[in-house]
Amino acid sequence: MKYTEEHEWLRVEGDVVVVGITEHAAEQLGDVVFVELPEIETMVVKGDEVCVIESVKAASDILAPIDGEIVEVNEALVDNPGLVNEDPQGDAWFFKMKLDDPGVLDDLMSEDEYKEFLG
């Protein structure tokens, strides 16, 4: 698992990478009540706002962690946004991206580095 400073996790599954938000992020956001997912087959650039997450009080975005194509989204989150709080690093993945160059993940944090980042 790799981590970004925006509190996303990335897990490689073959030639795709699965993206979600960390337990820390989910805990900080509080009860998630709304999730808006990107369209599949969208080409995104690292830093693009690709998902909207709303908790009771605040709106946040998930930014694309790398360049590439969105190949799958987790429709279960639309019907059950609370899944983000229940299982942020498991069932509550947000989207999958095609991973053309696994090397782009080298810049991201390892689990230990993310823990250190959280302080």
Binding site: E6, H24, L29, E49, S60
Partner: peptide, 12 residues
């Protein structure tokens, strides 16, 4: 509200 995924700062 903060429009970025920075939950440490965007208090609910």
């Amino acid at each position: 509200q903060g429009r970025n995924m920075d939950p440490g700062q965007s208090g609910p």
